[in-house]
Structure formats: C-alpha cells, structure tokens
Computed example of a mutant assay.
Amino acid sequence: MIHQGALAPGVRIADLRIEACIAASPLGFEYLARADGDGAPCRLLEYLPAGLAERRGLQVSVRSGAAAVFDVGRRAFQLDADRFSLRRDDALAVVQRLLVEHGTAYLQMPWHDGPTLADEYRAGREAEPDDVRRWLVSLGRALGRLHRGGMVHGAVSAVRVRRRADGRVVLGAPESARWALAASLPGLIDATDPSLAPEQLLDPIQRARALGPWTDVYGLATIAHLAIAGELPPPAHDWRSALARPSLARFAGERWSAAMLVAIDRALSPDPASRPRTMDDFLAAMGLLERQAPPRAEATEASAPPAVPEQAPRATPTQSWHGSSPRWRWAVALLFSALAALAIWAALRPGAAAARGDVQRPSEMPVSEAVRNSG
C-alpha cells in the first residue's frame, strides 16, 4: 500500500534503512526498517502530524504559525522514549532509541511479525479461554507494574496488542503526542473508539485529574469483551448505548466462568468509581490472581506476648528512712543538730546586727560611692 507523504524505501535514518511504510495516521508514519550490519528488522515511528507540517524532500517543514504546537507534540512524542526505554515487563514494548533527524523525531522499537488481537478476533477466530486468561494475566501484571511506577498507559486496545511468534503478547507505546495535540487537532482523538474510557474524553485539565489505573482496566476489559463476545463494547461517549450493553453473563458456562464475566462487565462501567481500582483488583475479581491475606500468628506459647517481669514495689521516703541502718539515722540527726546550733550562735553573737547593715541584700543593685555621698 502506498501512503502519500511517507518516506520512500531505501531512505536512511541514522544507521537504519527504510524498507516499507506499513501504516499511516494523522500523527505520522510507521515503517519497517533494517539496521546496517546484521540487517535486523525494527519498527520505526515518525512524528509528522499532517495538520502542522509537511515533507519537502527528506526534510519536515512546519507550517506557518504552527511551530509552537508542533514542538508541544514532539516533546510528548519524545517523552514516550523516556517513559518506555526501560524494560519493565516482556508484555510492554520498549523504545530502543530516539532519533532526531530531518526536522522531526523517530522512535525505534522492536519488530514483531504476529497479528494484533484485533486482527485475530475480528477475523472470526474463536477465542480459547486458556489463551485469553494467559494474555489477561500477562497484560494485567505488566500494566500493574507500570501503575506502581506512577504511570498510566492510556492506550490499551486490541489494535495495540500484538501476538508474538511464541504465542505471547506485547502492548505497544501509547503515542502520547495524540493527547498533547488534541486541543489543536481534534481529529487526532476518535471519540467513537470503543477502547477509550469516558474520562479520556474530558477536557485536558479534567482528564489529567480523572485518569488512573482504572482507565487501563477499562481498556483491557474492552479487549476481553472482543475475545468473548466477538465484538467491541459500544463507545463510551454514548452513555445510553454503554448502559444498554448486554451483559457478558449470557456467555457463562463451561468455557467462561460467571465470576470472570461479571468482573469484566464491572470493569466496563462508564463510572470510574464502579470499576476495579487496580489491575490486581481486576485480575483477582476475574479469578486470575490469588490475593493472599497476611499470615495470622498462631495462639501458641512461642507467639504469645512476652510476660512483663514483676517489679518490686518502690520504697517510699518513709520506708527508706525506717528501713535504713540505725547508725546512719543517728549520724544524720547529729549533723542537723550541729548545723542548727551554729546558725543560732551566728545570729546572737555581738556585732552581728551592725555587720548586717553593711551587707548588700541580693535584691539590691550596687550603689556607687558618689551616689552615697550625694545624699
């Protein structure tokens, strides 16, 4: 398929050679590229929003007056390279490199040949319950790790989950630039996309406050709905259709457990507060994760609280005095008697009163000789 405005086969980006353009969107293009040397294939994403820039030769030229908005989107595009450059889980795609060339940016990602889950289930393939449970656990645990790191993916959908050759699945990057440019290019967000949770369609300020792990719970539940019912749920922007959606409980039986179907129905609620709050809660509600309660201490002698040793009662001053040695009692009495006699003698000796008249009392400030002489 020929995509208008895409790079032609053979064009080089750093040490990568473009082999074919495999997809196009209002945000840019996606290529199959190969590296020099070993010729290993990779997926290359190009940032080129059609409403803000155009290609002139190999160079990307920003339209007049659109430079500021173009840069906002490019920074968000590059932010995905920072957020997904670390390998957190095998079920999350990793951005291998960020390349800046020809006036724009490119993300290099691993190449996977397998189809997406959207391709599998839309082609009429009957879902195998064991396989569905496996990829639900794989994606749920991967997203749970992402959430515990303080991030929300925000683009969990069947078209972004690709099947690997060994049967495992991997979730691609979210393309954060779509949301950064949504106010300037409303066409980048498709409100009829069934994988979008209702809170994602709010204005940017409200949206930033409303997003959370429950948003990705909704996205994962839409894929489960597709696998079980053979179709995606109604778009969340249409509340009437969302509330009138037939329950998945009609599929309960030998293939699908009732508890799992009820949990998915709950995860598809238009009200975020009615959904499981975390991925672990969602997996546990479906019966795919065993939530272990903290071990309880057994009521044995070893686990019993240590006994407080008995302490001898503290002696009162009277008890201490009467319990002391008789010699010490006589010595103390004699000492107090001697001090009292000395004090009486000092007070009654001759000249004591005169001497007291010359002694400065502690509460008085010293008076200089000149002040005394003056009167």
Results as ranks from 00 to 15, higher is better:
residue 203 D to L: 15
residue 309 P to M: 05
residue 328 W to E: 12
residue 138 S to Q: 15
residue 79 L to S: 14
residue 11 V to Q: 08
residue 205 I to W: 06
residue 123 A to D: 10
residue 374 S to G: 13
residue 129 P to E: 13
residue 126 E to V: 11
residue 4 Q to G: 12
residue 308 V to K: 07
residue 278 T to W: 04
residue 177 A to Y: 00
residue 160 R to F: 06
residue 140 G to S: 10
residue 254 E to V: 09
residue 90 D to C: 08
residue 32 L to Q: 00
residue 61 S to Q: 15
residue 5 G to A: 04
residue 109 M to W: 02
residue 1 M to P: 04
residue 326 P to W: 05
residue 62 V to L: 12
residue 78 Q to R: 15
residue 294 P to Q: 08
residue 9 P to C: 06
residue 89 D to P: 00
residue 229 A to Y: 12
residue 193 D to N: 14
residue 259 A to T: 09
residue 373 N to L: 14
residue 342 L to I: 12
residue 230 G to P: 00
residue 228 I to K: 02
residue 228 I to L: 06
residue 91 A to Q: 00
residue 340 A to Q: 03
residue 240 R to S: 09
residue 295 P to W: 01
residue 81 A to D: 04
residue 13 I to A: 08
residue 106 Y to N: 01
residue 175 E to K: 05
residue 113 D to T: 11
residue 154 G to N: 08
residue 49 P to C: 14
residue 315 A to F: 12
residue 218 Y to C: 01
residue 327 R to H: 04
residue 285 A to Q: 11
residue 184 S to T: 13
residue 232 L to Y: 09
residue 298 E to Q: 06
residue 308 V to C: 03
residue 109 M to C: 15
residue 365 M to E: 10
residue 216 D to V: 07
residue 271 D to N: 15
residue 375 G to N: 06
residue 82 D to V: 14
residue 156 V to C: 15
residue 363 S to L: 06
residue 168 R to H: 10
residue 368 S to N: 04
residue 258 A to I: 10
residue 295 P to F: 02
residue 135 W to A: 02
residue 91 A to C: 09
residue 99 L to Y: 05
residue 358 D to R: 14
residue 57 G to W: 05
residue 71 D to F: 13
residue 151 M to S: 14
residue 37 G to C: 04
residue 108 Q to F: 03
residue 236 A to Y: 01
residue 119 D to A: 12
residue 300 T to Q: 13
residue 346 A to T: 10
residue 55 R to H: 04
residue 244 A to V: 02
residue 232 L to K: 11
residue 294 P to H: 05
residue 343 A to K: 06
residue 204 P to T: 01
residue 123 A to M: 08
residue 247 S to L: 03
residue 127 A to W: 05
residue 320 S to F: 06
residue 267 A to F: 00
residue 197 A to Q: 02
residue 173 A to W: 00
residue 104 T to Y: 07
residue 340 A to V: 07
residue 224 A to T: 14
residue 256 W to D: 05
residue 325 S to H: 12
residue 205 I to G: 13
residue 102 H to Y: 13
residue 132 V to I: 12
residue 148 R to W: 13
residue 286 M to T: 03
residue 329 R to E: 13
residue 45 L to C: 03
residue 370 A to S: 14
residue 205 I to P: 02
residue 59 Q to D: 14
residue 62 V to Y: 09
residue 111 W to C: 08
residue 324 S to Q: 04
residue 319 Q to P: 06
residue 227 A to G: 02
residue 185 L to F: 08
residue 272 P to Q: 07
residue 167 G to W: 04
residue 300 T to N: 10
residue 229 A to Q: 02
residue 179 W to H: 09
residue 39 G to A: 00
residue 180 A to T: 07
residue 350 P to G: 10
residue 74 R to P: 01
residue 54 E to D: 14
residue 303 S to A: 13
residue 83 R to L: 08
residue 83 R to C: 01
residue 132 V to W: 01
residue 319 Q to H: 13
residue 128 E to S: 07
